[in-house]
């Protein structure tokens, strides 16, 4: 699982790694936090990302990466405990509060985040954002979903097809 560094700062400095976003911003972060990403974990275990090298992430811009790392830093201690089976109820409630606020953001950021979580294989983050978008879809008609999620306006053909579908599947709209 996660790198052995506990990151609590009591037993010396935790190992740090450097990540480089697509727009060339460097982020220095504890290896334990970055290792929430399955993709990065392998590189870090191989000793990468340390010193002046840095790990380039050509698919993630700096705004998205700073958000991703905010999540990883918050969740790293619990992940280091193997999913935190012995975490207190207070810890869990705090993480839940953090998660709820974390996804309370602009949609375009949500999409960037879920793509980044997918590419970096950060399961918890991907699941959190997917749940948020699923909640935005729930209870809406196809047209409302398009509007809510910021789809471009449908072409006349698409519109006609949607209307026909809705007639056919009237039961799903009652």
């Amino acid at each position: 699982m996660a790198a052995p560094e506990s990151g609590d700062g009591n037993n010396g400095a935790a190992r740090m790694v450097t990540l480089i976003s697509s727009d060339n911003t460097r982020f220095e972060v504890e290896a334990a936090a970055a290792s929430l990403s399955q993709t990065l974990q392998l590189t870090i275990l191989d000793g990468g990302g340390g010193g002046g090298d840095g790990i380039p992430l050509p698919n993630v811009d700096s705004a998205t990466l700073s958000k991703v790392l905010e999540y990883c830093i918050k969740h790293a201690p619990a992940a280091a405990n193997g999913g935190a089976p012995n975490a207190t109820a207070v810890d869990r409630a705090e993480l839940e509060r953090f998660d709820n606020e974390f996804v309370n953001i602009d949609q375009s950021v949500l999409y960037s985040l879920i793509m980044a979580a997918h590419n970096l294989e950060i399961e918890g983050l991907q699941s959190l954002v997917a749940k948020k978008v699923a909640d935005m879809i729930k209870g809406k008609s196809p047209m409302e979903i398009r509007r809510t999620l910021g789809f471009p306006d449908p072409t006349p053909e698409e519109q006609a097809e949607m209307n026909a579908h809705m007639l056919e599947y009237g039961w799903a709209y009652e």
Binding site: S108, Y111, I114, H118, A130, I137
Partner: peptide, 17 residues
């Protein structure tokens, strides 16, 4: 930022799950 149409299938599947 990507639009919902640019989300790859694996990602939209995660949402629909």
């Amino acid at each position: 930022a990507p639009t919902p149409l640019e989300l790859i299938n694996d990602v939209t599947a995660e949402i629909f799950l």
